[in-house]
Amino acid sequence: MKSAPFEYVAPSTISGVLEILGQNDPDEVKLMAGGQSLMPLLNMRLSRPALVLDLGRVADLDFIRETDQGVVIGAMTTKRAVEDSELILREHPLFWESTVAIGHPPIRNRGTVGGSMAQADPASEYPAVALVLEAELVAVSARGERTIPADDFFVTYLTTCLEPDEVLTEIRIPRLAPRTGWAFQEVARRHGDFAIVGATATLGLEAGVAVEPRIAVFGAGDRALRFPSAESLLAGQPATDEVIDEVAAQVAAAVEDPLDDAHASADYRRHLAGVLVGRVLREAAVRAAEASTGA
């Protein structure tokens, strides 16, 4: 396979990137991060940009930093760098756990955090985790910078709210409240495959009662989905099996129009969404209980 011809540019600064975007019709330009989604599309000629703008030399987009509010990850940081980061493992074990569920080592060596967010694959791990961690995504363009809550960022299949002339620069993940439990689970045919369905949750416990539960599911709908009504059903309730089963059933019922394809039927995906949400809530509750007894 051979992609259609394109011109190529690899600026070394963000201002250089914006300059090139300004000189060209942004619809004709394709940004390339790790290429682990874009290269297959180019090879198969499903994407035929006139110009490939490679972000691979922009060193300022490759970092993991701790701030007063939490952790900030540059868009061009590879998944492998996240996997190898002590800081992420300590501060955001949920983000770490979701990282090693993505593809295989060679994919994580090249694929970036920003690339996965921008690709917005409905079965991708990161968007769902960004929802429960209430991450913010920062984008720049010649018009300035904007900060976008994860809730507004993912629009539908392979579509974010980014404009063609905007470049994602960083992902900000606020620190979790103390003693927050978390969990992440997915079902895939083989380890490393895109998930059929996955679920993730965070949850605090005060005297056995759920505080600020957050629930997201991926692989079930047109994008990662968060479930505010199921979350409010759980909030303030004791995290018992009975309550969790009820919440999980509500999530399963709330998945609108689940994906139905060669990998799994819509019914199976709805079923999995319920089962996995039940599991992650139980696991998150155990972690929250352990954290509050100082175990």
């Binding site: 396979m1 290429g35 290269m39 060679p106 060596n109």
Partner: peptide, 19 residues
């Protein structure tokens, strides 16, 4: 098509030669 680039395994079909 795996090869090592600066010690890391990559899919050589998913990288451009210029990179």
């Amino acid at each position: 098509c795996n090869v090592l680039v600066d010690g890391q395994t990559v899919r050589s079909c998913l990288m451009l030669a210029v990179q």
